[in-house]
Amino acid sequence: MDHKGDNHIKELEKKISALSDALAHLGKGTSMQELLKIIRFPGYTTPAEFIFNVAILDSMQTQVVLLEKLGNDLLAGAKQVVQK
């Protein structure tokens, strides 16, 4: 592999490792566990705040599903390159 290709691999390794670390940290779910405690306090939400909370949580769930699909698709594509 040429020198330029080695740099590309190193950059990809850094990005993949950083993303893997970020996903592992995200997967701990500590902020959502804290949120579960907070919502139990009396008067946490008005009806409008409830709607905002539901919209944000639904959006976050959709993004997690899409992120997982994108990661799986990226891996599947990478496997196709290696198999050739």
Rank of each mutant, 00 (worst) to 15 (best):
M1G: 15
D2V: 09
H3A: 15
H3K: 14
H3R: 13
K4V: 08
K4R: 11
G5M: 12
D6V: 07
N7V: 10
I9D: 09
I9A: 14
K10T: 00
K10P: 04
E11S: 13
E11D: 12
E11W: 09
E11V: 08
K14Q: 08
K15W: 06
I16V: 15
S17G: 05
A18Y: 04
A18H: 06
A18L: 02
L19Q: 12
S20Q: 13
D21E: 12
D21G: 11
L23P: 04
L23I: 04
L23V: 06
A24Q: 10
H25A: 11
L26Y: 10
G27D: 05
G27E: 03
G29Y: 04
T30R: 14
S31C: 02
Q33F: 02
Q33Y: 05
Q33I: 04
Q33A: 10
E34T: 08
E34K: 12
L35H: 14
L36F: 13
L36P: 05
K37V: 10
I38S: 08
I38T: 10
I38W: 11
I38L: 15
I39D: 01
I39L: 11
R40Q: 14
R40P: 03
F41A: 15
F41R: 14
F41P: 00
P42G: 07
G43E: 05
G43L: 09
Y44W: 01
Y44M: 15
Y44L: 10
Y44I: 07
Y44T: 13
T45S: 13
T45D: 15
T46H: 15
T46I: 12
T46V: 11
P47F: 02
P47R: 06
E49L: 08
F50N: 14
I51A: 13
N53G: 02
N53S: 01
V54W: 01
V54K: 15
V54T: 06
V54I: 09
V54D: 00
V54N: 07
A55W: 03
I56N: 07
D58T: 07
D58G: 02
S59E: 06
M60Q: 14
M60I: 11
M60L: 15
T62L: 01
Q63C: 02
V64W: 00
V64P: 02
V64C: 02
L66T: 01
L66P: 03
E68G: 06
K69P: 01
L70E: 11
L70S: 08
N72F: 03
N72H: 07
N72Q: 12
D73F: 01
L74T: 14
L75A: 13
L75K: 15
A76Y: 04
A76K: 13
A76H: 10
K79Y: 13
Q80H: 09
Q80W: 00
Q80N: 10
Q80D: 06
Q80C: 01
V81I: 12
V82I: 13
V82F: 03
V82W: 02
V82S: 06
Q83V: 06
Q83C: 00
Q83R: 08
K84I: 07
K84F: 08
